[in-house]
Design a protein around this nucleic acid. Structure first.
Lengths: 115, 115
DNA sequence: TGCACATATAAGCATATACTTATATTATGA
DNA sequence: TCATAATATAAGTATATGCTTATATGTGCA
């Protein structure tokens, strides 16, 4: 496997974004499945504008992709990003966030959308 | 090899420290060999107080260790830190900083101290 | 067309961050 | 003991950050 070296400046930018509990959790959540804003709000127990602002930073940096489906906007991890290898490594070393989504599911709060 | 999971909060704290070009370079430098403050100043072309302040943050978080030898204080990577695996992975994915030290050496500015 | 929901954006504000300059601390060596 | 070198710390300041509340935008549906 070819090893790609990530420019220091770009690595620092990504690491700065990862260096926040909220954003790190968001990335941990989208690692496995895409999520919409209201799910983040529910899981993280934060205000909707605050979540939106964090998502915007992640999206502006290109770390996540957004896709509108009906009234929801789903966010997913951008695995094509130059710094994705860093994100991947980091996410492997922190607790899995999946259970938080299954808890949502049990509470009937998971958004299932196929429009 | 046992895989250790790093608490999200602690991971975020370390990532925040890594998310700065200066500190990321410093960690890249001490990855291979310990360095003293004046070497960082030379390599990074920044003021001494600024460097010292970055080093303090890294040391307060426990990411680096310091050791006085005569009038110099040498800094090295703390490989016992809980989040060291993250740091290690990140440093593997950015350009090696070693050449900057060899450049210093050629310029006769490397501190060699054995007191 | 109009209302409700999901989301984004704007503006304001308190705190954090990363420098600067000035000064203190510690060690060396004449 | 004094001057110098290496480093740390303090104080000041401009900018960045992450929230808040208020409002705008876009979609679905009666």
């Amino acid at each position: 496997m070819e090893k790609t070296i990530i420019e220091l400046e770009q690595a620092a930018q990504t690491l700065k974004l990862l260096g926040d509990k909220t954003r790190l959790t968001i990335l941990g959540l989208v690692k496995d499945s895409e999520c919409c804003v209201c799910e983040f709000v529910e899981v993280l127990q934060m205000s909707q504008p605050s979540i939106s602002q964090h998502l915007r930073k992640l999206r502006d940096a290109g770390l996540v992709k957004e896709q509108r489906r009906g009234q929801w906007i789903f966010y997913s991890l951008n695995r094509e990003h130059a710094t994705y290898p860093i994100i991947q490594q980091v996410l492997e070393q922190i607790p899995d966030q999946k259970e938080k989504l299954t808890a949502l599911e049990k509470a009937g709060l998971r958004i299932q959308c196929d429009s």
